[in-house]
């Protein structure tokens, strides 16, 4: 575990806390894509199937359970909680996310490290995570104005991806046999998707103005 990986995990955790805080404090999920949240729940459930077969560390196991539980809690809030549910605007959240699920699974069937049940679901989760933010980014772009907490949620998610790239560079330089193409290439694609958002996030930060995305 290096400092970049730890910082990446912490910003990932922070992003989820910011999102939960937003939903809890405002009893609203306006600006939040339910589809992205459902994709993340699928990502964690598919990836952490190894919770029952492989033990890495107490830290890993704990974080896996936190990620699964928190992603399910967020989906539950948006789908079931009476007040939060009312604030969900399904007309803005129209991304056909099932296409992402289908494409990721198909890709995992062809591109995986081993042709086993766990490995295919692991690869599937990596591909799906890479594109899972798309419904959220499209929703933000369509609604134009982004509230502070939602903006910070996406910012921390992007920061987490950026830090994971630094982690891989560090591991590549320090571990003699560090090669993991699937995770690294997908991770770079995933981070690139945030580039546009980051550009406007920094402009609004520099000008001390509200974050606005161009239509």
């Amino acid at each position: 575990m290096n400092i970049f990986r730890l910082a990446g995990d912490m910003t990932h955790l922070l992003s989820i806390l910011v999102l939960l805080l937003k939903i809890y404090a405002t009893k609203s999920c306006s600006g939040v894509s339910r589809k992205t949240q459902e994709l993340y729940a699928i990502v964690f459930l598919a990836r952490y199937l190894d919770l029952f077969t492989d033990f890495i560390s107490v830290y890993n196991t704990f974080m896996k359970i936190v990620f699964i539980a928190s992603s399910l809690a967020i989906v539950w809030c948006i789908r079931v909680h009476p007040m939060v549910k009312r604030s969900y605007d399904k007309d803005l959240d129209t991304f056909r996310h099932y296409l992402l699920v289908a494409a990721s699974f198909l890709l995992a069937l062809f591109l995986h490290e081993k042709f086993t049940f766990l490995e295919i679901f692991w690869a599937f989760s990596i591909y799906l995570e890479a594109v899972a933010i798309l419904p959220q980014l499209v929703l933000l772009q369509r609604s134009g104005n982004v509230d502070n907490l939602t903006g910070q949620y996406v910012f921390f998610l992007g920061a987490y991806r950026g830090l994971y790239i630094l982690n891989w560079i560090y591991r590549y330089l320090t571990e003699p046999r560090f090669t993991r193409w699937i995770a690294c290439v997908s991770g770079v694609v995933q981070t690139a998707l945030y580039a546009d958002f980051f550009y406007y996030y920094f402009i609004s930060w520099k000008n001390n103005s509200k974050l606005k995305l161009p239509a």
């Binding site: 990932h12 077969t53 974080m63 046999r177 995770a183």
Partner: peptide
């Protein structure tokens, strides 16, 4: 890399 423990990241 220990076999079966390649996925040591989250």
């Amino acid at each position: 890399v220990v076999k079966g423990k390649i996925h040591d990241e989250l």
